[in-house]
Amino acid sequence: MTVGRVREILQDAYGWALKTDWKLPASNARAWYVSEEKLEPRLGERFEEPIADYEQPLAPGRDAAVLHQALDHWPSDTPVAEFLLRHPEHRHILRRAQIVGRAPYAEIRDNTISKDVLPIDMLRCKLAFFGAVHFDPRSDRWVRICMYGNAPYPEELQSRSADDWVYPAKEEG
C-alpha cells in the first residue's frame, strides 16, 4: 500500500478526527490504561492522574490525526513499508486504517478520549457480543449485566430456535 492510499483512507474513515483540535485538553482529557490493582482496563483522567505513560492504544481518532500529520510531507507513491521503518510508532494505527479500508464497520468513529466520552455504549456493544442482556448501568463507567438469560440448555438446542432467545416471546395471560 502507498502513502497516498493511506491518506485517502484516513480522510475517508477518520475525517471527523482530522477536523478535531487535539491540542484542546477537552479533546484528550481521558486515557485508557490497565490497572495494576485488578489488571482490568480503565478510563482515567489524563491531566489529573499519572496514567499517560501507561496508555493503551485505544484512541484511534487521535492516532489517525497524528499519523495523517506525520505523512503530510511524504510522497504519495512511497510504500508504507518505508514510512513504517522510520516510524514504527505509527504501525498500530496504520494497521487499523488498512483494516477499516476494507471493513467499514471495523472502527469506532468517535472520540474515545474526549472529556465527554461515556463508554457505556461501547461497553454495551462489546458485551452484547458475549451474549450479555439486561443492561443495568451502575455508573457511567460500569454496567451490571445478565449472561445467557433465557438461553437454551444443550438438550434444547435442537428443539428451540437458537437465533432469538435473547428476545423471548411474551407470556400470555
Binding site: S35, E37, G44, E49, W142
Partner: peptide
Amino acid sequence: EASRILGAGAG
C-alpha cells in the same frame, strides 16, 4: 488514591 476518588473500576 486519585484514580479511586475519580471512580476508576467497578464500585
